[in-house]
Simulated assay, not measured.
Amino acid sequence: MFVLDANNPEALAECLKELNWLAADENIVTLTIPGAGNMNCVLRVDTGKRRFIIKQSRAYVEKYPQVAAPEERVVTEAAFYDKVREIPFLQGYMPRKIGVDVSNKLLAIEDLGPANDCTVLYNEGEQLSEETFTKLLEYLSGLHQQFMKNKVDDELENEEMRKLNHEHIFKYPFMVENGFDLDTIQEGLQSLALPFKNNSLLRQKVEVLGGLYLSKGKYLLHGDFYPGSWLQTEKGIKVIDPEFCFYGSREFDLAVFIAHLYLSGQKEDLIALVADKYEGFEQLNRSILNGFVGTEIMRRLIGLAQLPLEMNLERKKTLLDFASKLILNEKI
């Protein structure tokens, strides 16, 4: 398999010409890393005439090579882009697909230009504008409404990626002994997490939610709708990295969005607008939605997938208590 390497533009140029993604007289002038990636190797190709993004999925997580991952994930991502292309409104929020090479697990997509992801929201005091908030919800509800099935089938099942995500969302954070000392993240976090890890009722509820996540559903989900997948560009907010996409319960997508509003310290009056801005909110199962919100908050605080949070232990305890009540369907 061809191996994508930022230090070998000549080999990449030869590969891309064989795929007809580069013209015969076109060469790579620069090959750079566009931003901090988690799952895949991602590079920006500049030929002097145009720029585009090339990404490759390998049999492990790029940021955590010790973690195995399905290497077919960019092929699934490419299929998602193909579907979104059918709806101009949704395509306007995402880069266009240029091509996919199944054998080498390569995906080429449009370069959205100078951009920063929205993980800056985790900095204390950073607030999401109501305009951007509204656009993100318009994208999410539009995705769910436009790609709704009357009958569940196997399209975009993405089973292996969901199994990987299931492990890190619904199992690993709630294990008392998982080999990850939370005190390496923040002194005192390990003991703070123990009462939640030892709560058998909480673990049972999370296990049920995990089973629902693994079940097939009627709505096409982005699958990882959090600030790392939102790009602020010169043309406004964009959405990237749908490699965890699948047809499932739309409560999951919306819950991840809501959970990160809490984790990033957004104002309550903005969070309350979700009910007005998300089309079909009144039709959602509120217990399932809240359960997913609580689980996402907890896994980001006491799981492996840590965020760049500026948050003391007292605030984390408040959020963990809140998340626990959401999962247990207790009065807030």
Rank of each mutant, 00 (worst) to 15 (best):
A78K: 12
I33H: 00
N20C: 13
A59L: 05
Y81L: 11
Y64E: 13
V74I: 13
N27A: 05
V61M: 06
Q56T: 13
I28W: 01
C15V: 12
K49Q: 14
Y81R: 10
L22E: 15
I53L: 07
Y81I: 12
E18Y: 12
D25G: 00
D25P: 05
T47L: 01
T32Q: 02
L19N: 04
R85E: 15
V67N: 05
A23I: 09
L22T: 15
L43H: 05
A68H: 10
A36F: 09
A69T: 11
R44D: 01
S57F: 00
K49Y: 07
A79V: 02
D46L: 02
K49W: 04
T32W: 00
L43E: 04
N38Y: 14
D46I: 06
S57G: 10
L19E: 10
I33S: 03
R51Q: 12
V45L: 01
N20Q: 15
G48K: 01
Y81T: 09
I53Q: 09
T32N: 05
A59D: 14
P65V: 06
Q66E: 13
K49C: 12
L43C: 02
L31F: 01
V84W: 04
C41I: 14
G37K: 08
Y64R: 15
K55R: 11
N38H: 15
R44E: 08
W21K: 05
L19V: 03
G48E: 01
A78W: 07
P70V: 11
K49F: 05
E77C: 08
I54N: 00
I33P: 00
R50A: 08
T47K: 01
A79G: 00
V42Q: 03
V61T: 10
P34S: 08
L19C: 12
R44P: 06
E72T: 10
K63F: 07
W21C: 03
A79K: 09
A79S: 04
V67F: 14
G35F: 09
R58I: 05
V84L: 14
Y60P: 02
